[in-house]
Write a protein that binds this DNA or RNA. Structure first.
Lengths: 233, 233
DNA sequence: TGCAATATGAACTAAAGGTTCATAAAATAT
DNA sequence: ATATTTTATGAACCTTTAGTTCATATTGCA
């Protein structure tokens, strides 16, 4: 159990308590129990999909009684709401805080950093990211509206802003279709990233495989985006 | 109900009967009823996910009694097996038949055709493709092995072969990382294609949106892959 | 007309999963 | 030390879901 993430989460949890998404009881829990519950919810959601989350399984996974989860979240749906909201807040914050650095960097370097941002994630961060990714591939319309759409838009707009900066600095051809190109780079980033975050996706995306490891993909990614494949004329 | 696809499916169905995946009864059904059942299975699987398929819903959707489905497929799992096998065979055949044309074309043209291949799909083809795509985003390991892995590998190898052809014809810089680059183009094709095939994915991939329509994405795709974004030196 | 093949869907069954609540334990206050 | 509040527990309850069966009806064919 990773406790290092605990302090960072406390402000979010206090906020969620104000909004009635968790009870006071949960906030006052000792760190270990609190993290066990959060990880159990995220892991369960990542494995079975957010909407298929099962409160009994979560209880067992966290080493806690079902009844306790009811005193924390009120209901299964309340538990899901909590996880969803926590995830959105956390991810939005994360992208917001990276933004200025990424925009200021030369595009190829910024892209590298953006793509490999997840080299050293804590267990909780990884859990939240996986939770988001799982939600993203589900067709549930409520999840799409509440998590996927807002976070994905933030991500795409970040790519777009990086590209705009690069154009302003003369690092990019002026004749590219800014809007469509930033959408494509956003999409390609997703494929490259998610095949690492949710390994089963790599069976489809096939981003890595054989002796093509993530590092090599990163190089090819930047090379492809910067220079394409046509011979230099 | 589209009956135009019926003749094309008959050979597959006869084959599947030999392998015990459907009963003789099903093969001898009139075209309309047969297609109604197949579409019902595929649609149900596309909406709820292949493994979450529900035999009672399929029956209702097809306008057929549950008991009849049991005389056709033996069990719910048998029904799923049938759909899975039909899907793999059909998709593999399709890619195999396109292959020679795509390889022979100049790369940019081949890529265009590959990406827009689905402009005029029949209802059944679309159903099979959606079935495959839904399976691809599920973490079920049996589906991964039986459908996703083989079909995705076929797709990626096709991209690779197109790229090899292009290199041999001198249309491509010799210094690109062939293996990694074909994986990236494969991935980008998936993102671009699936955001159209399963529209809810576009909330995440955000390939189209605003005044960026599929046509424009296609242009930007080819431009990005061929020339990248850096200024021509 | 009768036999074989097929269709039907109510009824059976099992499992899954959300929720409650009486009881116990722990923490806090008096 | 005792009372009181807070929290933890998990067996039991209940509803829903979904796979399967089968007696009965229907259809096609010899």
């Amino acid at each position: 159990m990773t406790l290092s993430d605990w302090p960072q989460l406390q402000s979010h949890i206090a906020e969620l308590e104000q909004e009635g998404l968790v009870t006071r009881t949960f906030r006052r829990l000792d760190a270990e129990r609190q993290m066990a519950v959060i990880h159990a919810v995220l892991d369960e959601a990542s494995e079975r999909g957010p909407t298929a989350i099962n409160i009994k399984h979560v209880a067992e996974r966290a080493g806690v009684a079902v009844g306790s989860l009811y005193t924390y979240f009120g209901s299964r749906d309340g538990m899901l709401d909590f996880a969803v909201t926590l995830c959105v807040r956390y991810m939005s914050d994360a992208f917001e805080s990276f933004r200025p650095y990424l925009i200021a960097l030369p595009f190829d370097q910024g892209l590298r950093l953006y793509l490999s941002g997840g080299v050293e994630w804590s267990q909780t961060q990884l859990g939240l990211i996986q939770f988001f990714a799982r939600a993203a591939y589900h067709s549930d319309s409520e999840l799409l509206e509440r998590i996927v759409q807002p976070v994905a838009t933030t991500m795409r707009e970040l790519v777009r802003a990086m590209l705009e900066g690069a154009i302003a600095r003369g690092e990019v051809r002026p004749d590219i279709d800014l809007d469509a190109t930033s959408r494509l780079i956003h999409g390609l980033s997703i494929v490259a990233g998610d095949s690492q975050i949710l390994p089963y996706l790599n069976a489809y995306f096939q981003i890595t495989g054989g002796d093509v490891l993530p590092e090599r993909v990163l190089d090819a990614f930047v090379a492809l985006v910067m220079d394409g494949i046509a011979p230099r004329s």
